[in-house]
Design a protein around this nucleic acid. Sequence first.
DNA 1: GAAAGTACCCACTTTGAAGTAAGGTACTGG
DNA 2: CCAGTACCTTACTTCAAAGTGGGTACTTTC
Lengths: 129, 129
Amino acid sequence: MQVSVLPADVNLANCPSRVLLDHVTSRWGVLLLAVLLDAERMRFSALRRAVGGISEKMLAQTLQTLERDGLVLREARPVIPPHVDYSLTPLGREFAAQVWELTRLVERRLPRVVEARERYDTRNAEPSP
Amino acid sequence: MQVSVLPADVNLANCPSRVLLDHVTSRWGVLLLAVLLDAERMRFSALRRAVGGISEKMLAQTLQTLERDGLVLREARPVIPPHVDYSLTPLGREFAAQVWELTRLVERRLPRVVEARERYDTRNAEPSP
DNA sequence: GAAAGTACCCACTTTGAAGTAAGGTACTGG
DNA sequence: CCAGTACCTTACTTCAAAGTGGGTACTTTC
């Protein structure tokens, strides 16, 4: 029996790859992958401190999504107080490398973008109120 | 007078780079940048056809955001019917190259992610109903 | 004995991103 | 003369993402 596995295409509206793309480009997903690439392994509260502004809820939720997708490995040691380590899987490292580059590019090119916005705004200023 | 230009850091909650990151990782922003990298130059309706499921509103809105950020160049020829070409600026090409790689990686690795999700779901199935 | 660290979960509310639908313009082809 | 093309804009609505504030269970430190 023939199981049809069409190649994924993000440009198709109902392609499952869209969901994965949403996960790895999500607001907190990008940042978590990037810091995990720098860190090898991190605890919950260290991640919370590393990613400015993330809430505990969103941290837990995003980590679960990435874990389910096989990008993040969760290792809990049943001690008191609880000790949980998060790290990237080999698969996760592939994605993290990409988004890491993207975040660095964003940081590097921000000044140019700010200039571009200023140019755009003066060019498109209201001509006559 | 000293104008302080701190280096941008996406891990800081109130860093302006967060906004730019949101733009280039937005649902439709990623896809538009990626198709524009493949195409050199594209018209509005061609983009609409290329990116499955995008509405005219979101297409116009996302293009405006990317244009304002200096990533996309809009060239309108005042003819009837209107003819508008969209292309990447050199700056835009840098970002597009990154997200292009990311979309290809997503497509390539989707099968592994699907497997990972199945493993996760059976492992974490409800233990006793 | 009170507070803080540790890693969460749950319920509730808010926000904003996105979808839907319609209108508008100035023409061309049937 | 009506439909269609091309490129939008505006108004209204919806829905999921995210924020808020609480609780847990146990230990160590002040």
